[in-house]
Design a protein around this nucleic acid. Structure first.
Lengths: 231, 231
DNA sequence: TTGCTGGTGTCATATTTTTGTCATAAAAAT
DNA sequence: ATTTTTATGACAAAAATATGACACCAGCAA
């Protein structure tokens, strides 16, 4: 569930500093000291975001970013560029290459986390790992707990992920295949209709909380969580 | 069980002052007059926290901090930096390097203790060494004693540490590996499933106290101590 | 030494929960 | 009324956890 974040940075102390902070923020950091090694990592499993140093020995950050953007499997992965102050004029260039954001060294880890969350919130809110609250129902991805008015509700792993996904993306309708991709992972060769069954199970566990009608069926398409705006 | 705290400070009177105060607060202080010596100590056994003077003869505090952060075995250890007033502008730099907190000399020992506890509470509340009380069950880390309604309960060392960890982190679910790291220490190459066995043993000893269902299984993840909120 | 004793980690086996699929019922659309 | 789509209950396979047994180790007393 935790978002995996690939850090490509040749200075080890900075690499570690970032990694620790990401870990504490509930992310899953993957370390790489070079672009070349990073490429190998990516071939095995795709990170949800990449933090990339501008200057690297061997293949530099710019070149690496270009390659990320050039491949269809990796094109969508957000990139945050790190640059030293003296290279600040490269900012524009970096953004042109396709970085989603950039930060100037030295930076505070806190700010980095904030930017990461901002980007993830845009692309995959269910990975941000923040507690979500809706009308007395609270889901905390880090504590791995679901409560209704502070009462813990027992819920299975898949249902938990499913609910996390829906609560992170309220009022948006998803097809069964989208849901499979996001909740089960894109590796799955699972039948569409399995989603129906899990929706049913999720509805059942929510029934006891009086939140039964939270997840609506969108006929012909899939499902949607309907969030009641608190006026 | 007492948290071991490494103090790296070249001025001997200050070093002693800190050490004595830490000892009185129930911690286990380890003294070092130089970064070089501190490194040797760390190789033998990892402290739970490091108090580090900014200015040191030989390798200075900044360099030392970088090395701490650069090694995978030590990177998680929190660091508190000590700086003289005149060096205060280094604050930001220090935080960037990866210090978790910093203090300006002169400081009151009381405040230092408070900051240490704050950091430990954040990272490893089970090391703070304060008695924990839950629904008649009281665990005292310093006296090393567990009582239920003032009746002493016999409990083995590992189970005690395990319970201490859970009581210090109520309502949060942990994976078996997290538990291994925190309770057994991160050096361990122990099988995941061993945790299950100890959980069982802990549950058994708690059974006699009528607190059997304190520790819940979180399927697919690990375990959680479920604290009933006293309204 | 020798023989206890309590505490540990590992393993094999039992038990429980979760999960994906399918057949059928129910509902909605045409 | 017919067709299409979704809901539901049942079920078996798979995955995860609980449990009991056992061997090993350290400390200790005889």
């Amino acid at each position: 569930m935790a978002a995996s974040i690939l850090i490509v940075e040749d200075e080890e102390s900075i690499l570690e500093l970032i990694a620790i902070n990401l870990h504490q923020a509930g992310f899953n950091p993957i370390r790489s000291l070079s672009a070349e090694f990073a490429e190998k990592i990516i071939q095995k499993n795709l990170p949800d975001l990449i933090i990339l140093d501008w200057m690297l020995p061997g293949m530099d950050g710019v070149e690496f970013a270009k390659r990320i953007r050039g491949s269809s499997t990796t094109r969508k992965i957000p990139i945050i560029m790190l640059t030293a102050k003296s290279e600040e004029d490269n900012k524009l260039k970096g953004l042109n290459i396709g970085a989603d954001d950039y930060m100037t060294k030295p930076f505070s880890p806190k700010e980095l986390i904030a930017r990461i969350k901002a980007i993830l919130r845009r692309n995959a809110p269910e990975l941000v790992n923040e507690p979500i609250n809706m009308n007395g129902l609270e889901l905390d991805p880090i504590k791995y707990v679901l409560t209704n008015n502070d009462k813990i509700i027992s819920i299975g792993p898949t249902e938990f992920k499913l609910l996390n996904f829906f609560m992170s993306n309220p009022n948006i309708a998803f097809s069964r295949n989208q849901i499979l991709d996001k909740v089960w992972g894109n590796k799955s060769d699972i039948d569409d209709r399995t989603v129906d069954v899990h929706i049913k199970r999720l509805r059942d566990t929510l029934k006891h909380t009086g939140q039964h009608s939270l997840i609506k069926t969108v006929r012909g398409l899939g499902y949607r969580l309907e969030k009641i705006e608190n006026s």
